[in-house]
């Protein structure tokens, strides 16, 4: 991974060998176990995986918001080339909400029920800039307009319970946008919403970040969301990235058997009338994972060598763009199978 892009500036976000663990009664749970990825300015990255694959913890680790007793024990997170771990808490707080904003999964839970929308938006502005309340309020209002909320003045005076789920998520997005961050981490923000609202919000988010040049990490378990939204995708399994690359390359011709399985599990990919495809077995317990590829117990292509951990490396199809997979025995390219 190159430390600098074409313009000579370091990439916006570099995650290198990130390890986040949670001590439990049964042993150390390595929720994130050596995750690397890079994000350029304005880029949209899809972080895909099942529940428990470590994708959300990765998001929280970037912001330094892992709930105790969980902690980051290894790796680095660099924003504009600056290692966030070297900053003190004050400096990290100045980054949160200002340069990196986050949107959460459940809009019913992310807004404080006893504070008015204007209070919650204005404090997001005044936490980072010494502006007057009136000015912060104008910014908040503008952000609400930006996310397509009608009658923003009325909404500013409302309490969260007076708004619908979709509306609350828009407010949360407006709060994320209000300080014009360089990066937004969105942790499954549409999962809890109606399908129609999901589509709207996805479309609007994409338009908003493109327009403002904001980079976006979209955490989801839904490959179809990523297909329409992201530039690049990282597929996570048991705390590790197993395949990463441009979204079209990875989704059209996955090389890691797990990615293949995920794609085949999307019901729309199945011919009508046949049983739905599924990945056999269960997600392994993330405590005391055996060495080697974590997927090998469920993998139809596992070979003897899979007891060694493969590196996240190019599977030898350079023509397919900068794609890498963590597999000794990758799925052949489609042309080869036909």
């Amino acid at each position: 991974m190159s430390a600098a892009n074409a313009s000579g500036r370091p990439p916006l976000l570099q995650v290198e060998g990130l390890v986040t663990v949670f001590p439990t009664r049964n042993g150390l749970l390595r929720a994130v176990d050596g995750v690397d990825f890079t994000l350029e300015r304005g880029e949209i990255l899809g972080l895909v995986g099942e529940s428990g694959s470590g994708k959300s913890v990765t998001g929280f680790s970037i912001l330094g918001l892992v709930d105790p007793p969980g902690r980051i024990t290894g790796g680095r997170v660099l924003l504009d080339g600056v290692d966030l771990a070297t900053l003190d808490e004050r400096a990290r707080r100045a980054i949160r909400g200002k340069r990196i904003a986050m949107i959460f999964q459940d809009p019913m839970m992310t807004l404080n029920p006893v504070l008015r929308i204007d209070t919650q938006m204005i404090e997001a502005v005044t936490a980072h800039e010494s502006v007057g309340t009136a000015q912060a309020r104008d910014r908040a209002r503008a952000a609400l307009v930006q996310v397509g909320i009608a009658a923003p003045d009325e909404r500013l005076l409302a309490y969260p319970h007076q708004l619908s789920g979709g509306m609350r998520q828009r407010v949360a997005i407006a709060i994320a946008l209000v300080n014009r961050p360089d990066l937004i981490i969105a942790d499954e923000p549409t999962t809890a919403l109606d399908v129609t609202i999901q589509g709207q919000i996805l479309y609007e988010m994409q338009a908003l970040v493109r327009e403002s040049g904001t980079a976006l990490v979209w955490i989801t378990h839904d490959l179809s969301v990523v297909a329409g939204l992201a530039d690049r995708v990282c597929v996570m399994y048991a705390g590790r990235i197993v395949e990463a690359g441009p979204v079209d390359t990875v989704l059209d011709a996955p090389r890691h058997p797990y990615t293949r399985g995920l794609i085949d599990s999307v019901p729309a990919m199945n011919p009508r009338g046949r049983p739905l495809a599924q990945i056999p077995g269960n997600t392994p317990s993330p405590i005391d994972l055996p060495p080697g590829c974590a997927f090998r117990a469920r993998c139809g292509r596992a070979i003897e060598r899979c007891v060694e951990m493969p590196a996240l490396a190019s599977p030898g199809d350079e023509g397919q763009g900068r794609r890498s997979a963590r597999c000794w025995h990758p799925v052949p390219l489609p042309q080869a199978t036909r």
């Binding site: 912001l63 707080r93 949160r96 904003a101 404080n112 936490a127």
Partner: peptide
């Protein structure tokens, strides 16, 4: 303290006292 809105408040960069 374990509610999402507290975590969200942290993600907004609010001070502990706030």
């Amino acid at each position: 303290m374990v509610q999402d809105y507290i975590r969200f408040a942290r993600a907004k960069g609010l001070s502990d006292s706030r």
